[in-house]
Design a binder for these strands. Structure first.
Lengths: 196, 196
DNA sequence: CCGTATATTGAACATATATTCATTGAATAT
DNA sequence: ATATTCAATGAATATATGTTCAATATACGG
């Protein structure tokens, strides 16, 4: 039987899991602390044993996301295109087994964009900015003919916005994930790839 | 000087405009009726002269969106690919001049996905489903070699999710729109286009 | 002008919900 | 066994916010 310490940790994880789901499905303000409590099978009051406030609970989630969704700096790859391919492959296959990854992707976007999220928490989410990082990579790769022509920032923006859009839709369409009707990585790579 | 009737209509439009902006930026629940009032330079109470409730104001916006964002049934086109090209071209160029189109796109997605939006309003937003419609078009066009192979629904889903993602990002990045760093329509068409 | 209708305000009211807290019960240590 | 610590509850409290309303200002027709 689990020790007290373990029980507590499990409970904490359960709260985080349910809170993530709800924040994504309903947004920050519309998710009531009582909703989370009910989803985690506990009383409203008990929530405050585990987290100081609704805001702090949200912040914990965002910090987790900020650590997890940063672009890996040293993903091994032969050419810059393969870097993006590798990232998407890893992302999709991992998310398929761990649905919370979809949710986390959405949560981070929400936190970045939506006003009405406390400023300090927004800033944490803002630090994760794939577009800027990738733009440089694309610019370099264009000279070698890997990427199509055009403004590198616009290309990077288009690519990541698309990925974002897909993650968002998948987050609310678990049926698609289960039936395996996921986008083919190549389809998305073609947004930036040079086809001549 | 404008007649009273005109004044009233202008005010109504102003409320709708500001409400759209705020609902998109902050979400439904986080947008307070007082915020909208302030943005439209009027007292909280006066809002209720123009709209019965926050919910009804939201519904009016969703109805506007449902009429505007439906796929045109009879856009003239030579081949199915040109249909998508034409749609995106029209969408981007129109939205560039009318920024509220970006916002409306986001609002509709929010209404469709987010729980905590009153059911009847959700349903209105749900009727606008590009994915299902386009999937048929894609399936037909695949046989003629216009579109790449793969599950037509997954292709349609990927394409529209990408468009959605881009519209969402542009909605919160007006700077990109002004500087004209918009995605090239071809980049997105390449998601579904057959390149052999 | 004057009276009526309409626009507008700000405060009052009702409700919902985040947070606190006194109390209970269970697990662990002594 | 008993004491002590901590998990857990649910009701009480404080606060925020949607909505109503009485009072006031402004525009319009006669």
């Amino acid at each position: 039987m689990p020790t007290r310490e373990e029980q507590k940790e499990q409970r904490r994880q359960l709260i985080l899991e349910k809170a993530l789901e709800l924040f994504v499905k309903k947004g920050y303000a519309e998710t009531k602390i009582g909703d989370i409590a009910k989803a985690a099978h506990m009383s409203t009051g008990l929530m405050f044993h585990y987290f100081d406030s609704k805001e702090q609970l949200y912040e914990v989630l965002i910090r987790m996301g900020a650590e997890g969704t940063n672009l890996p700096q040293k993903l091994p790859y032969d050419n810059p295109l393969a870097y993006f391919e590798g990232f998407l492959n890893t992302l999709f296959s991992y998310a398929k087994e761990n649905l919370w990854v979809f949710h986390m992707f959405v949560l981070m976007a929400q936190a970045r964009q939506s006003e009405g999220i406390p400023t300090q928490i927004r800033e944490i989410a803002m630090r994760v900015d794939q577009v800027e990082q990738s733009a440089k990579l694309i610019e370099a790769g264009q000279k070698q003919g890997y990427f199509r022509g055009g403004d590198p920032y616009a290309l990077s923006f288009t690519f990541w916005s698309s990925v974002q859009g897909i993650m968002e839709q998948l987050a609310v369409s678990p049926a698609l994930v289960e039936t395996g009707k996921l986008p083919d990585v190549d389809w998305l790579i073609d947004i930036i790839k040079n086809k001549t």
